[in-house]
Design a binder for these strands. Sequence first.
RNA 1: GGCCCCGUAGCUCAGUGGAUAGAGCGGCAGACUUCGAAUCUGCGUGCGGAGGUUCGACUCCUCCCGGGGCCA
Length: 504
Amino acid sequence: MPARAILSLEAELERLAGAPVTLERPSRAEHGDYATNVALRLAAGNGQPPRELAEKLAADAAQLPEVERAEVAGPGFLNLFLTPGWYADALGEILEAGEGYGGGLAETAERVQVEMVSANPTGPLTVGSARNGAYGDAVARLLEFAGNTVEREYYFNDVGRQIELFRESVAARQRGEEPPEDGYTGAYVNEIAAEPGDPVERMLDEIKRELEAFRIRFDTWVLQREIETQIPDVLPKLETYEAEGTVWAPTSAHGDDKDRPLVRSTDGSYLYYAGDVAYVRNKFERGFDRLIYVLGADHHGYVGRLKAAAAMLGYDADRLEVLIYQLVHIVEGGQAKQSSKRRGDVVFLGELVDKIGVDAARWYLVSRGHDQTIDIDVDLARERSEKNPVYYVQYAHARIAGILRNAGGAAADAVADDPAAEERDLIKRLVEFPDVVREATERRAPHALPTYAIRLADDFHRFYHHHRVLESEQQAFRLGLVTATRAVLARSLDLIGVEAPDRM
RNA sequence: GGCCCCGUAGCUCAGUGGAUAGAGCGGCAGACUUCGAAUCUGCGUGCGGAGGUUCGACUCCUCCCGGGGCCA
């Protein structure tokens, strides 16, 4: 939802035009503060020349108190130039909303679970898991900001072949032997072997520490072992059939590519999908309105089977959402590198954070679209991190914090007789924020936030370069302007888990 | 063979129907007696290809080419 200042203007224009009006910011200043293509849309319907319609609408619009002048351009665009009064209203709205500006936009607040990361506890978290967490946590933060209740969950696959291999690998090292064929050989295996206690427990604790350091706070940790005890209760609730010595779930009747095996008839042992179904039921039974799974592109095949599980259990499959992000490729010396946690030649989250820090890492991992594959050269990462736009945005925040420190609590307001171009641009940028947040939330696309934050920082730095805040005739208005800017910068960063420092 | 993602400036990427497609990095040339120069200003004939839908397509549809992934 756009800011109120936009909505009310759209509503007035809608009344004049007799049709829905959407305002957008033209890329060129001479096309006005805002523009609408409503005349073009209307003309397509009733055969009237679009410019004629636009001319009439322009004459009416020019009478509105917010509109300084209205012009018709191109094939029939209506370009609006707004009054200082509109800018004062817009900034006033933002200052009034304070820290909550742009939030609380959910139409109906839901109880949402976001399950993310969920890497096997057979090693430290990789950069792939870091992307999962950075992305999933940003989506979770957006949903919370919109007014939903969000719980973050981590599912530990603590049983199965990989776990056994991991235990055997550690045990072999402890005996001074080589790990088994296909076993885990990374350096961290030696470190785990050197310490007492269950290696899986140790990895669980290590992963929890890493996530906390990465600023992802989980509400619940679930063990596969526990979920599997619920399988016997769940299977009778499913329609199943037996074939080839196996009990199957007819998931293809619910949109899956093919049916999934549940139980091996010969020995009654459960297959992987049985656990998936039990877990889906377990989640819904906990009362969530919406389940979100965050999975890498290599798990794309899970979308159909998870939704089928929900449907077979009698739940609305639309309430189970699977967010797929593309993989992180490690590049070294210009060559993409095959990586394997077993061989230990992956790049770990810890290494990335050591080299570039949490802020740059989270920014970097979430600033690409989730449908975009990321290539990461860790050796270049540190060098690049010095040029990371995250510091550009943080610097804008720190600069404002400095101004506000020096202002010593002087009064701030929203009114200026005739805001300068840089001031108008900054206000219009701030006015965009609720819509950026809304779209990022709806599309589960938090990468819109870094993009927006750079633009906002850019507008601020330009404003700062041209105008003094303190000891100027416009001090109160400019303090209002930078106060609003600081709040929106801080919120933009917080939504992607990056800190907004007062000093750098 | 089937399915999913991607192809935009030298590089990394924004841009899910509007006007002359934008940032960052790299490069060149400028700007500090000033609330923080981690800043600002200037310099760019690029949407993989071919059709189609539309008043209007980077955006939607079909096919082809190229890269990545999953399943078989």
